[in-house]
Deep mutational scan, measured.
Amino acid sequence: MDVFMKGLSKAKEGVVAAAEKTKQGVAEAAGKTKEGVLYVGSKTKEGVVHGVATVAEKTKEQVTNVGGAVVTGVTAVAQKTVEGAGSIAAATGFVKKDQLGKNEEGAPQEGILEDMPVDPDNEAYEMPSEEGYQDYEPEA
């Protein structure tokens, strides 16, 4: 019985440690998101679009440190934060509304985080759909 109880105690310690790591990862992701939003706020009209992409990228980098179902929630929060940063930029006159959601080359930025393969159960990952990809044929 002692062996059984000791095993359960060790398992509990492992769960607590994993929860603490997840909590730490979420806190880091939130900190990076805040950094990115402050970065966007300090940019001029020309830099705002690039700044919004930076927020998304920093958040995406930190999301990889967070495991399990938390990833889905962090990704949703990050996307809403990026959308909010863009709205703030438009409201303050840093950028025109028609410039939001495009990178410096004018290509749409939507789907940055949505296409990231995420499995809350950590069982399997699927690649994003290939609808947006084109076949590449090298020139002879």
Score class of each variant (00 low, 15 high):
M1L: 00
D2L: 08
D2R: 01
V3M: 11
V3S: 03
F4P: 00
F4Q: 00
F4I: 08
F4Y: 01
F4M: 02
M5Y: 04
M5D: 00
K6M: 04
G7L: 09
L8R: 00
S9Y: 15
S9W: 14
K10P: 00
K10V: 13
K10N: 05
A11S: 02
A11P: 00
E13D: 12
E13Y: 06
V15C: 05
V16W: 13
V16C: 09
A17P: 00
A17I: 12
A18G: 03
A19C: 06
A19Y: 15
A19R: 02
E20C: 13
E20W: 06
K21Q: 03
K21A: 06
T22Q: 00
T22A: 15
T22G: 14
T22I: 09
K23C: 14
K23L: 12
K23V: 05
Q24K: 14
Q24W: 11
Q24M: 12
G25S: 15
G25N: 03
G25Q: 14
G25L: 05
V26W: 14
V26S: 01
V26P: 00
A27T: 03
A27H: 06
E28M: 09
E28I: 07
A30G: 01
G31P: 00
K32L: 13
K32W: 13
K32M: 09
K32D: 00
T33W: 13
G36L: 15
G36F: 07
V37T: 01
L38N: 08
L38K: 10
L38P: 00
L38V: 10
Y39K: 11
V40S: 00
V40Y: 15
S42H: 14
S42K: 11
K43N: 01
T44N: 01
T44Q: 01
K45C: 13
K45V: 15
E46R: 05
E46P: 02
G47M: 08
V48P: 01
V48H: 00
V48D: 00
V48M: 09
H50P: 04
V52M: 10
V52F: 14
V52T: 01
A53E: 08
V55R: 01
V55H: 01
E57N: 05
E57C: 06
E57V: 08
K58S: 07
K58Q: 09
K58I: 13
T59K: 01
T59F: 15
T59N: 01
K60H: 10
K60I: 09
K60E: 01
Q62V: 03
Q62C: 14
V63E: 01
V63T: 03
V63P: 01
T64R: 12
N65F: 08
N65V: 09
N65G: 13
N65S: 12
V66Y: 13
V66Q: 02
G68V: 10
G68S: 05
G68Y: 00
G68R: 10
A69F: 15
V70H: 02
V70E: 02
V70C: 02
V71K: 04
V71M: 14
T72N: 13
T72R: 04
T72A: 08
G73Q: 15
G73H: 08
V74A: 09
T75D: 05
A76L: 09
V77W: 14
A78R: 11
A78F: 13
Q79T: 07
Q79V: 11
K80H: 10
K80N: 05
K80M: 07
T81N: 03
T81R: 04
V82W: 11
V82L: 13
V82G: 02
E83L: 04
E83R: 13
E83D: 03
G84V: 12
A85S: 08
G86E: 07
G86V: 15
G86A: 08
S87N: 15
S87F: 13
I88A: 03
A89M: 11
A89S: 05
A89V: 14
A90F: 05
A90I: 02
A91R: 05
T92H: 03
G93L: 13
G93K: 06
G93T: 12
F94L: 08
F94R: 01
F94V: 03
V95I: 10
V95G: 13
V95T: 09
K96F: 14
K97E: 03
K97G: 11
D98W: 15
D98N: 14
Q99M: 15
L100H: 02
L100I: 09
L100K: 02
G101K: 15
K102Q: 03
K102P: 10
N103A: 04
N103P: 12
E104K: 14
E105A: 07
E105K: 01
E105T: 10
G106F: 12
G106E: 07
A107F: 03
A107R: 05
A107V: 03
A107P: 11
A107Q: 03
P108G: 09
P108S: 11
P108F: 07
Q109G: 03
Q109K: 15
G111V: 15
G111M: 12
E114N: 07
D115Q: 07
D115M: 10
M116T: 10
P117Q: 12
V118N: 10
V118G: 15
V118I: 07
D119K: 02
D119A: 07
P120H: 07
P120E: 10
P120W: 03
P120R: 09
N122F: 13
N122Y: 02
E123A: 08
E123H: 09
A124T: 07
Y125R: 09
Y125T: 09
Y125A: 02
Y125I: 14
E126I: 08
E126V: 06
E126T: 05
E126P: 11
M127A: 03
S129K: 06
E130M: 07
E130Q: 12
E131R: 03
E131F: 04
E131I: 12
E131D: 15
G132K: 10
G132Y: 07
Y133T: 13
Y133P: 14
Y133I: 03
Q134D: 08
Q134I: 06
Y136I: 12
Y136T: 02
P138H: 06
P138R: 09
P138W: 06
A140V: 07
